[in-house]
């Protein structure tokens, strides 16, 4: 019997797990889940336009990104401009010139902005701020409503600008 037990214990080897994870409730998941996918999954109810976003941007964003999203003194990034520069020797990467998905702008503003108070904007404020930035880049109109249905359909200018990693791409001479 003793021998049998010893064998049984020693058989609990690699790959065994302690099964200590506790089931996560829908409530926990909803409270923590911030991810917005390119097809719009994860976008919350709410809406905003560039017109409504002007005040939100001025109050919450312009201290760093300037009144029109042009950035400040190289220290705070520009969100607007740079169209047509990406394939030149001096590319200017902004939301308008470089970012491939509008959903990414929503995801990032909601989780990380304003820089010193991340996570404090309400969904309507996020939609409006995103609409303001897209409009300032000439991508949507002044009164185009951004919501969970319309935002994923926005075609960003650099949507087709990305390719997968092709390394190893540089062959060294021996």
């Amino acid at each position: 019997m003793k021998t049998f037990l010893l064998i049984a214990i020693s058989c609990i080897g690699f790959g065994q797990t302690p099964r200590v994870g506790r089931p996560a409730t829908e409530e926990t998941i909803k409270a923590m889940d911030l991810t917005v996918f390119p097809d719009g999954r994860g976008l919350p109810p709410g809406s905003g336009t560039a017109v409504k976003g002007k005040d939100v941007f001025k109050e919450k964003c312009s201290v760093c990104h300037n009144d029109k999203g042009e950035g400040r003194q190289g220290q705070y990034p520009a969100l607007v401009g740079g169209a047509g520069t990406i394939n030149t020797p001096k590319p200017i990467k902004t939301v308008g010139s470089y970012w491939p998905y509008a959903t990414t702008v929503f995801d990032y503003v909601r989780r990380a902005m304003p820089y010193d108070q991340p996570g404090t904007l309400k969904p309507d404020e996020v939609y409006a701020a995103v609409a303001f930035v897209l409009n300032a880049n000439g991508i949507i109109g002044d009164n185009d409503e951004m919501n969970a249905m319309t935002l994923p359909k926005v075609k960003m200018p650099n949507r087709d600008g990305f390719v997968l990693d092709k390394r190893p791409d540089v062959k060294a001479k021996k």
């Binding site: 590319p91 491939p100 990305f162 390719v163 997968l164 990693d165």
Partner: peptide
């Protein structure tokens, strides 16, 4: 997307 992507001379970026 915006960061940690590598821009090639032709304007395409590796992701």
């Amino acid at each position: 997307t915006a960061f940690y992507t590598d821009l090639l001379p032709d304007g395409k970026a590796r992701q």
